[in-house]
Nucleic acid binder design. Sequence first.
RNA 1: GGCCCCGUAGCUCAGUGGAUAGAGCAACAGCCUUCUAAGCUGUGGGUCGCACGUUCGAGUCGUGCCGGGGUCACCA
Length: 596
Amino acid sequence: MSFISFIRSATTNSLVQLYQQKFSEKDFQINETKPEFTGDYTIVLFALVKSLKKSPEALGKELGEYLLKNYPVFFSGYNVIKGFLNLEIEETQLTDFLQKNHNDVSFGKMPSNHQTIMVEYSSPNTNKPLHLGHLRNIFLGWSVAEILKANGNKVIKTSIVNDRGIHICKSMIAWQMFANGATPGSVQEKGDHFVGDYYVKFNEEYKKEVTQLMNDGKPKEESEKEAPIMKKTQKMLLDWEKGKPDVRELWKTMNGWVYRGFDETYKRIGADFDHTFYESNTYLLGKDFVQEGLQKNILFKKEDGSVWIDLTDVGLDEKLVLRGDGTSVYITQDIGLAKQKFEEYHLDKSIYVVGDEQLYHIKVLKEILLKLGMLFADDIFHLSYGMVELTSGKMKSREGTVVDADDIVDEMVATAEKHTQELGKVKDFTKEELQELYETLGLGAMKFYLLRVDPKKRMIFNPEESIDFHGFTGPFVQYTYARIQSILRKVGDEESGISFEVSGLSNLLPLERELIIFLEKYPNIIWDAGNEMDPSIIANYVFNLAKLYNSFYAEHSVANAENEEKKHFRLQLSVMSAMVIKSGLRLLGIKVPERM
RNA sequence: GGCCCCGUAGCUCAGUGGAUAGAGCAACAGCCUUCUAAGCUGUGGGUCGCACGUUCGAGUCGUGCCGGGGUCACCA
């Protein structure tokens, strides 16, 4: 039981005893005591004052007195200021807590709750490489999945690869036209970048042809339709759908190049998936439900044969669910895939990590599912996040204004190398150890930067300014961990191990108290982050923990503590701080270095 | 135009209806003969977009405006 929940139940019990009135959790608040007052936790009395018909001062005094008398093992003091009852926690509670948990690596994690949750994230197209926006999606999805695991859920990480459609054919046509049989191997380029280059070439050629046609006097719209390269591409899409062998073969080959490129990036940034769905396998799903919906008169057909659903009763529009020629639209397959996910994996929840530009789309999807009688729609959650924009505006792959994922990671790693070299603290590292450190720090800075803000806020990235390594950053937190490891290495030579009993300690210093109380909150933080599906809660916590530890570090020595007892105590405090930092950063996908 | 999100220090952001609104960056001033200075300590910097309302109490809740963004495709 956490400190705060203990105080809560002790308070409700006391109120029953004192005033014969039963209050629930919502009837009063317990906050952390502000630093300018003495105490650890504060009961806000105003809400109780009314129904108890007492003055805040009298109530505070009576309640404080009662708590102190009846829970003497837990409380050591109280004071009342205005309507606030500040409570001090007995020191042995703090040292016992530290003694018990400082070495428990599963501290903060919940036991299984027998819930299964699917988290779908990343979900790229196979015609171009990943960019900064994908990184936000990937880090967010991965982190939320891990946070949900820590809360006791079974989590299945998935990705739906958008591997078919007109955009893929564009790259294929351009390759046929311009590549002369080149492959990623023959030109020494990563497969996804290689294919992406042909997507760019397609657009260049297309633009050229449209301009030519317009110069010949054709109107814009007509020129766009009749550009030869576009006509070829459309024919290729039809051939693909018919299963024409040479088209399928080329499609397989080029997608294979892209997948190898993606896998390389995923591996480097630490993304992993339990299952991957491919749109080429799922795009026909959902057609059955359209038929069913038509029979039940939930859907209706227009004259041209296209099928629609009327959502005006829930404040949305009429939406197309099947084209006139019987082919699927995006939402058609989404209906089928959603059902398949829930049935195959017996999900309690399905989370879609998708940009906030698709809020409407997913809302529509859920409404359609509900109308078709698929009640699991209520267990679909859209974890939406804001777009990453540049100072120069939106990223547009067609205009080449994207920040490439591999490039930005390279840059971050290079920056880590530069800082490390300047400081010169790890000159004895081998080449491999150095490279590993640069990756740890560069990716740490990158991930922390993208995860420390509320997911739903859009963020503006300035490519001119490199991401910081000081202050509210990944490397700051990593640095704190490395410092603690340094202490443990040093003291570890003198002590054989760190498991010892600390007893009879008294007079904890303010920073020591604060640190323990801060560490004790970690399980609640994980719970909040899971509940909100928000890794920024973890990032903020872990940063504040590091800051607090650094203050402690600057003020007090561990190795040269006043006496042995104090030294052991501070070692425990340091071990636990390091452990929680490592655990919290791991939930963000960030590794910690032993030295930096 | 309808619906959704955002608006807090020069910049980037925290802030479960509670005490004098907090961090980081940037600026300035200090701190390495003592466990890693990627650090610590301090100073300056605010009409919490605006106006009403609810409440003992509003940055937080409600309504209406203003500003920014998204979306309302037989695109994904």
